[in-house]
């Protein structure tokens, strides 16, 4: 069992920065991102040979899994080890890097499913059909969630004070 997990190790090494970044966009904060990536990768790693066999694009599979895990707000106990370097580990609390980015802040405040739809659509570049398939919802729901999200974002960006709440 050493060899296939060595292969998995290489995969992790190569994909981790991209997955962490995606996790951050998806969850809106670096700690949850790290948590989500670690949780999903552990599971994937434990079934790596079978996932490799069944999935032609493991990264897409992992990103979908992360979106779903994020939506269901499913969390195990908080990890002791974080896989990303986050500000607190450096002994200081960093100001929110997006403090002056009303659009990013507004995305962060969307309900999880709307945010996942927005991230998959505008960060991952998936089509509505692909998003529907990834999240196990209908294309109609994708459309309505996206349209709700965009309209919320527009309102908040037009009046950013409100989103400071």
């Amino acid at each position: 069992m050493g060899n296939d997990l060595a292969d998995f190790g290489e995969f992790v090494e190569a994909e981790l920065p991209g997955l962490l970044r995606y996790g951050y966009v998806l969850t809106g904060n670096p700690h949850d991102a790290s948590d989500l990536v670690q949780t999903v990768l552990e599971k994937v790693g434990s079934k790596w040979p079978s996932i490799r066999r069944k999935t032609s694009d493991p990264v897409a599979y992992i990103r979908r899994s992360m979106a779903n895990a994020h939506i269901s707000r499913w969390r195990r106990v908080k990890r002791e080890r974080l896989v990303a370097e986050t500000p607190e580990q450096h002994g200081y609390t960093e100001a929110d890097p997006f403090e002056h980015e009303p659009l990013v802040r507004a995305v962060r405040e969307l309900p999880p499913r709307q945010r996942a739809v927005v991230v998959l659509r505008y960060y991952e570049g998936l089509s509505e059909n692909e998003i529907a398939e990834a999240l196990g919802i209908s294309t109609g729901t994708v459309k309505s969630q996206a349209s709700k999200a965009i309209s919320t974002l527009r309102t908040k960006v037009a009046d950013p004070v409100e989103s400071d709440g």
Binding site: L5, F8, G9, V12, L16, L41, E42, G45, V83
Partner: peptide
């Protein structure tokens, strides 16, 4: 990170 993920997966 890589090591701890692989170890946890194992």
């Amino acid at each position: 990170a890589r090591e701890s993920i692989v170890a946890a997966a194992r």
